[in-house]
């Protein structure tokens, strides 16, 4: 059995006026330690799928198995990182990164020390007593990563975590996140609409069609690229080949949508 199994997931949102099917018949499986990307246009249900995997929402049809257990609500195995950092502005950096430990009642001297060490590894020393507003966007997103990793989840869900950052910060953070996750051997799912980011970071890319979202095609990133950190992967000769391939596929998808 795989680490994560998504079995025939279909999800609809209901409102008085309408029903919107966000996802239809999504099935996929992910092995432990893999880095997966969900690529697709905005509004193709990628975020919905992440919410379903994390247990925040229950799918209308189908189910998700994490380590052979059915996901029925949020759990300690999964960490979720959002598009923006969403650090609590009234809490210090320290209080922010301890929040997960506090809520799951794991806050003790040892876990505190581990989290602070992780923060320092991210290049953030002497900021524990500061407030988020005193930090730059890139620093804040790093703090958000520490907050997510603090509870030691096995599976990380990254919902366009770099989209709100400037390009330079984004490239640096991609490398940092990539090497941190590899070092701790985390399984990760990255949602993005940036083809380059998906290629540079992941082992496999699931291309989603537009609403209702479903897996259109799976791209396997060549081993040569997978070994490199994202920044080097971007300048690898095979990078542009796979980029062109995915680009073409996306174009075709859009055309079929327009018809």
């Amino acid at each position: 059995m795989s680490f994560l199994e998504i079995q025939d997931v279909t999800h609809s949102y209901f409102s008085k006026q309408s029903k919107t099917t966000a996802l239809i018949d999504v099935s996929l499986s992910i092995q432990e330690g893999e880095f997966i990307s969900f690529l697709g246009p905005s509004g193709c249900g990628k975020t919905t799928l992440l919410s379903i995997i994390s247990g925040l929402i229950e799918p209308t049809i189908g189910h998700v198995l994490l380590e052979n257990e059915k996901v029925t609500g949020t759990n300690k195995k999964t960490g979720y990182m959002l598009q923006q950092d969403y650090l609590f502005p009234w809490k210090t950096i320290e209080e922010n990164i301890f929040i997960g430990l506090k809520l799951t009642k794991q806050l003790n001297e040892k876990t505190k020390q581990n989290t602070i060490t992780l923060l320092e590894k991210m290049g953030l020393k002497n900021v524990s007593k500061q407030f988020p507003s005193q930090l730059s966007g890139g620093m804040r997103q790093r703090v958000a990563l520490v907050r997510t990793l603090a509870t030691n989840p096995k599976l990380l869900l990254l919902d366009e975590p770099f989209s709100a950052l400037d390009f330079q910060t984004k490239l640096k953070l991609e490398d940092l996140v990539f090497s941190t996750l590899k070092q701790f051997q985390k399984t990760a799912i990255l949602v993005t609409h940036d083809i380059g980011e998906a290629i540079a970071m992941s082992d496999r890319i699931y291309l989603f069609t537009n609403r209702p979202g479903t897996v259109h095609r799976v791209f396997h990133v060549p081993d040569e690229l997978r070994r490199e950190i994202p920044f080097h992967a971007r300048s690898h000769e095979q990078y542009s080949d796979i980029f062109q391939e995915i680009w073409k596929e996306l174009e075709e998808l859009e055309q079929t949508n327009d018809d």
């Binding site: 979720y80 929040i99 509870t151």
Partner: peptide, 10 residues
């Protein structure tokens, strides 16, 4: 989204 952050920690 602030609630979402907290909810992911249960």
């Amino acid at each position: 989204n602030y609630l979402k952050v907290l909810q992911t920690f249960g």
